[in-house]
Design a protein around this nucleic acid. Structure first.
Length: 240
DNA sequence: CGCCAGGTTGTTG
DNA sequence: CAACAACATGGC
């Protein structure tokens, strides 16, 4: 079985699916995957939306997470000022569609407290720090683990970190790049060392991996129709 | 109906 | 330090 390397995989997925234009934002009540917002860095409002969206999307499909986001927008609450004034049960009720709503309400409040007291009220103030310092600070927030932290660093703050999520582990395992249970940072650093440090590439690559896993490299993979069949150890018999 | 979705934290051996 | 439980909605 021939092996495929990071940059080749990226090119192959990009050829098949095209640009995904992550991170998706909510504009005028609907999801926006826009080339325009993709090619420049987020402004403060967009960065804040990415942070909240990253928390809401934890172990939850994006449809439900975005539904919760839209409810915040509908109530004119999608900003630090309004969210800070809200009691936890009220916030939890608003974000109910995202699941784990009590936990996530607590996490959002933890972020608001962090933002108010540690970074002078603005997400983008983290851009002034070196990557290692920004990552350490974001990870210190209760409810923000490595994947959420790296999503914030990459998509909101334009730091060159590669995000490892469950899809990424699954795909890389099936491609036999990893066994599957490796440490998060081990996998991240490996990919980062094999690719040019380009935030737009990291953003698209991660988005493309999600796209490919949602459509083909599912729990029960659709190997017959998969464009990576030749490079993959998974079979189409229903298992790995 | 059961499974799963762009995880993280707390507890236990 | 690994394994496991808890957290929860909505689509298929």
């Amino acid at each position: 079985m021939p092996t495929i390397h990071s940059t080749e995989l990226y090119q192959k997925l990009l050829n098949k699916y095209g640009y995904q234009y992550w991170w998706p934002l909510i504009r005028n009540g609907e999801l926006l995957y826009s080339e325009k917002t993709h090619l420049r860095n987020p402004d403060e409002e967009e960065a804040f939306e990415i942070v909240i969206g990253a928390i809401l999307a934890q172990n939850t499909n994006w449809i439900n997470a975005s539904r919760a986001l839209m409810r915040l927008f509908d109530r004119q609450c999608m900003n630090p000022k309004q969210l800070t004034q809200m009691e936890r049960p009220e916030l939890a009720e608003l974000i109910r569609p995202a699941g784990y709503f009590n936990q996530k309400a607590k996490k959002i409040q933890a972020w608001l407290e962090f933002q108010r007291t540690k970074i002078d009220g603005k997400v983008l103030n983290l851009c002034k720090e070196p990557l290692s310092e920004a990552r350490r600070k974001v990870l210190s927030v209760w409810g923000v683990g490595k994947e959420t932290a790296d999503s914030i660093l990459l998509y909101a703050l334009d730091f060159p970190v590669f995000v490892i999520d469950a899809y990424t582990r699954r795909l890389f395992s099936r491609l036999e790049w990893i066994s599957g249970d490796e440490d998060y940072d081990f996998i991240r650093k490996r990919i980062e060392s094999q690719m040019e440090k380009n935030t737009l590439v990291y953003r698209e690559f991660h988005a493309l991996i999600v796209r490919h896993c949602v459509e083909y490299c599912k729990n029960k993979p659709l190997c017959d129709a998969c464009s990576l069949f030749d490079f993959c150890s998974a079979t189409n018999s229903g298992g790995d």
